[in-house]
């Protein structure tokens, strides 16, 4: 299992993508704090942008990890990313304003423990394992936190567990209509878990190219942002939800067209209703 099948050749080095991912996600999460400063929820869409940047970084981490011949493990990498990320994210929300940084630190701790267990106890002995699982845990935590900000407007535990329900024109506090009480976190979990593994899972093969995969990651991120923004109509004012929805939709349409263009560039041929071409020897 330790034979490295393919390496990242050319393109942007992984470290650069990782640093850019961490910085962009943290900045976006903190920009959403403008919600508190301006006493609105207009800046919730920054959560969605944090999701996109974390997913781009995460998809490349999966590429690095899965280059070590664990082809069928691509979807499970997405699952462990969010399984460990949800622990870090939930615990971090208790830290108030430092929540995003707390998510980073707790994610690193959880990831290192999981990486150690799989490499040393389960004896997988994959060189990139510890670093990749650590990165993936942080990706999961950032993505879930981004979804939380997008849907509720805040990343503190209070904003995720207190909502209000209007009965006969009277607003009553309610735990049921919240990110955690309504289990929207389950939706965010799978939205992120599939979005982080899909780009590499969809683009793997001998003709893998980095720009195409990263474009696919951005596309998955914006698509998830779009549907999450629609869910946010239930929890944030309509104006803020509309902003997030429009940004998600425009971002998705742009990246989707780009991705299709890159696939056309990389494909052997692009045929419409043509028979199987003749190949020598068959």
């Amino acid at each position: 299992m330790t034979v490295k099948v393919e390496v990242v050749e050319g393109g942007v080095p992984h470290t650069k993508i990782m640093v850019a991912g961490i910085v962009a996600s943290l900045v976006c999460l903190y920009l959403s704090y403008l919600n508190v400063l301006t006493n609105t929820e207009m800046f919730s869409f920054f959560g969605g942008l944090a999701v996109v940047s974390a997913l781009i970084w995460g998809s490349h981490t999966i590429k690095v990890l899965c280059s070590y011949g664990i082809g069928t493990g691509v979807p499970s990498a997405g699952m462990i990313s969010f399984g460990s990320g949800v622990i870090a994210m939930l615990l971090a929300t208790k830290f108030g304003i430092v929540a995003p940084i707390a998510a980073l630190i707790i994610g690193v701790v959880v990831g290192v423990i999981l990486g150690y267990l799989s490499n040393e106890v389960l004896n997988m002995k994959i060189p990139a394992m510890i670093q990749s699982l650590t990165e993936l845990a942080v990706v999961g935590a950032f993505t879930l936190m981004g979804f939380a900000v997008l849907m509720t407007g805040g990343f503190t535990f209070t904003s995720l567990t207190t909502g209000s329900i209007t009965i006969l024109g009277v607003a009553l506090p309610s735990f049921q209509v919240t990110f955690i009480g309504g289990s929207l976190i389950a939706t965010a979990f799978l939205l992120g878990a599939l979005a982080v593994q899909h780009p590499f899972n969809a683009c793997l093969g001998p003709g893998w190219t980095q720009d195409r995969m990263l474009m696919c990651a951005a596309e998955c991120g914006f698509l998830s942002m779009f549907v999450a923004a629609i869910m946010s109509f239930a929890l944030v004012p309509a104006g803020s939800a509309i902003i997030s929805t429009i940004i998600g939709l425009i971002g998705w349409a742009y990246t989707y067209c780009k991705y299709m263009g890159l696939s056309k560039r990389d494909a052997a041929s692009w045929l419409d209703a043509k028979p199987i071409p003749e190949v020598e020897g068959h």
């Binding site: 683009c203 001998p206 003709g207 991705y259 696939s263 494909a267 692009w270 071409p277």
Partner: peptide
Amino acid sequence: TTAYVGRTASLKKFGQPIYVD
């Protein structure tokens, strides 16, 4: 759609075309 075009584009070496239909 992204899965189909992505997987198929990565098989360029073997001449597998993407069929739009």
